[in-house]
Amino acid sequence: MLTKRIIPCLDIKEGRTVKGVNFLELRDAGDPVELGKVYADEGADELVFLDITATVEKRKTLVELVTKVAKTVNIPFTVGGGISTVDDIKALLNAGADKISINSAAVKNPGIVDEMAREFGSQCIVVAIDTKNMDGVDFVHTHGGRRPTLLQTQKWAKQVAERGAGEILLTSMDHDGVKNGFANEITSELSAMLGIPVIASGGAGKMHHFKDVFTSGKADAALAASIFHFKEIPIPELKKYLQAEGISIRL
């Protein structure tokens, strides 16, 4: 039976993890490769590396990081964060990344989704959508959620799916960082409407939030960062809990 996926997200700057992590077993808590391996060994189903480096050296350091991760980690991983050209995508995939996540670049030039699908196949394209509810309507935001667009979230998700996205990574800006649960309503709406998997992100604080997003939110996967980094919820414990709650999970 296909299982629901648990995905830790690591924020990266200049090849190092950004947010503090609370892993005593790590020799170097800032090393994304070591942290990624710990998560893989703990039972994470996938990893997401989100690069927030904004220098000209970005591509080089990111390719180096992807190479190291691919050599070390035995589960799939996605790389995202300011990736905007087909050349960059090709370099990252050739270095061993399984999927590439694009966000603002797709909003700026939706044709890049078609181009990526043609060149590399839908299976390696994740379109990340940051959404915020404004007076009852869901709008796409870009640049880390800071910049609103005129795109309605549901319409945009449908468009990128038709253009060839393989998965949607949906982050609710209303829920992100609040630890009060995922945005189950819009996650469920997109999951039912689209023929591709939806990864829910933003709002994880308690174990039951994951159960809720998999049941009422109909998510295929759930992503979180700080609760894993600070060990508020260890992945093995979370997965045991979900299985006991009747959720299909890989143990």
Binding site: R5, D45, A221
Partner: peptide, 26 residues
């Protein structure tokens, strides 16, 4: 949903290639 993306288990395993694994293998 198509593609089939994610972890799924093996069933009806019978081969030396799969020695040491059972239906709990994802």
């Amino acid at each position: 949903k198509v593609p089939h993306i994610g972890w799924n288990n093996l069933q009806n395993l019978h081969s030396p290639l799969l020695a040491g694994l059972d239906e709990s293998a994802y």
